[in-house]
Amino acid sequence: MTSSTARKSLPASVDWEKKIDDVAPSKLDLNNMVMNYLITEGYEEAAIKFAQEANLATSVKYNGIGERRKIRNAIQAGDIKSAIKMINGLNPQLLDTNPGIHFSLLRLQLIELIKECNASAGGDVTPAIDFATKHLAPRAPANKGFLNALEETMLLIMHQPNSPQLSAMNDPSVRQEIAKMVNDALLEADNMTSEADIRKLIRTRAFVGEELVKIQANVKINGPKTPFPPFDLGIDEDEQMSS
């Protein structure tokens, strides 16, 4: 009812481009958003340069920003041992207070070991089994999920190298996901928001765009039906041509 009374006089079409052009986000806000990205993603040098170039007053300590990225990269490269060492160096309590993350990392390490064992001559899996017994098994009873995950992982020992099961667990996206969990936990431990604002903004743009499509598709709602212009990143062929 509100919508029908309040929007009686609405035109059937709307000039989205004009409305969009009329929005004036402040430069400072955009700069802060970029800074937030550089910090959460661990681009330390860039963050320092940006604070200078954009003349941003920032209270952020830069220590540890680059370290987080190194940890992330180590996890993504499968070097879990160094990653755990660096995490403990940066925040000694983190893995103790986040047993789920610790278990996920150890499991990744086990997968790497299994891969190594499978690849070695004779395929001796003893080191992998030893590692599982020593590091993972004691943690498993604490949590049903841990136990299942451990069982699933140990089954990999019986599979051939390059089996679909092994490659599924070895998928880069698994490591990427765990790397993000670690980064988020480190940020939260430092009282920083783990999700970069840009990511939230993109998701919101997508969500609200969908909502508008739904509203426009609803014949009962009397409003402008002009489709909203798509978002264009603007750095494909055009940008390169002009450079």
Binding site: W16, I20, V23, P25, R205, V208, G209
Partner: peptide, 8 residues
Amino acid sequence: LVQQTAVL
């Protein structure tokens, strides 16, 4: 992106 989101 900000402009579009704000209008939406």
